[in-house]
Simulated assay, not measured.
Amino acid sequence: MLNKADEHLFKAALGNYPTGVAIVTTVDNEGHPVGLTINSFTSLSMDPLLVLWSIDHKSSSIHTFKETGKFVVHLLAEDQNELVRIFSKKDLDRFSEINWSFSANQLPIIEGAFAVFECETFQTIEAGDHTIFIGSVKNMQVKEKSPLLYHRRTVGSIPLGFHA
């Protein structure tokens, strides 16, 4: 069990580890778009094509993601840092603040991301205070853009280039 000093050290170490920034979206039972900012995204498997992300059990949208069985992961482009703020706030109609549309699969797609992965939930795993969502990628779009990065509690970019 971690004590407070260990917890602080753990957070400091991971906060100094640059990661990409993503927004995951889905729809609720009434077809309304739901989404939140994440930085816990990674690829998992090439065969089958699987990705994973996690959500805190305290999140107000966890049940929607569990019930829907499908979601979209948007890897944000370097010019989308305002979306991080919008999708991190509570009690805000996030989708009224942005440009988006429904995909052919009736999932909310945010315009301008450098990569978009439409997924069906393959498996969920309870792990500590989070649930891990593993998604089977059913459709994807990738644009030649630089990603938005999270480092030391800030978002930004560096010129990384793109290689397909």
Rank of each mutant, 00 (worst) to 15 (best):
P108K: 04
G112L: 04
S103Q: 01
D91I: 10
E30D: 11
T42A: 03
E120A: 12
H32R: 11
E118M: 01
E120G: 13
T37Q: 05
S96W: 13
K138P: 00
I132S: 03
V84D: 03
G135I: 06
I86K: 05
F133N: 00
M46P: 05
I86A: 04
K138A: 05
D129G: 09
N105G: 12
D129M: 10
L49Q: 14
K138V: 08
M46W: 09
S60D: 12
V27Y: 00
E126V: 15
F65E: 03
I62Q: 07
Q80C: 09
F41A: 04
V27M: 05
T37Y: 01
I55M: 13
F114S: 07
S40R: 05
L76T: 02
T121R: 02
E126L: 12
R85I: 14
M140Q: 10
W53Y: 12
M140E: 06
K138N: 06
S103K: 03
D91V: 10
L75M: 15
V72G: 06
V142N: 08
N81T: 14
N81D: 15
Q141K: 14
L76W: 03
T42E: 07
S59G: 07
D79I: 08
I134A: 05
T64K: 00
T42I: 10
V84Y: 08
T121C: 01
F117Y: 12
G69R: 02
T37L: 01
K58P: 07
L50G: 01
P108G: 02
D129V: 10
S54E: 06
G135T: 01
E144C: 12
T124C: 02
V84R: 06
T131K: 07
L50Q: 01
F71E: 03
C119N: 02
D129K: 10
F71N: 04
E126W: 11
E118F: 04
I125W: 14
G112E: 01
T26A: 00
F117G: 00
P33F: 10
F114K: 13
R94I: 13
G35P: 00
K58M: 12
S59A: 12
N81I: 13
L44E: 01
D79R: 05
L50V: 07
V142Y: 11
L36W: 04
S96C: 08
F41Q: 01
V142T: 11
N39S: 09
T68E: 04
V142H: 13
S61R: 04
F65Y: 03
L49M: 14
A115C: 11
A113W: 07
K145R: 08
E30N: 11
T42R: 08
Q123L: 15
I110G: 03
I132A: 02
S61L: 08
T124R: 00
I132G: 02
V73N: 02
L49P: 14
I110Y: 12
V51G: 01
D129E: 14
E111L: 13
V116T: 15
Q80H: 09
E118C: 03
R94K: 15
F114W: 15
N99I: 15
L76Q: 03
L36D: 06
V34N: 04
V72Y: 09
A127M: 15
L148P: 00
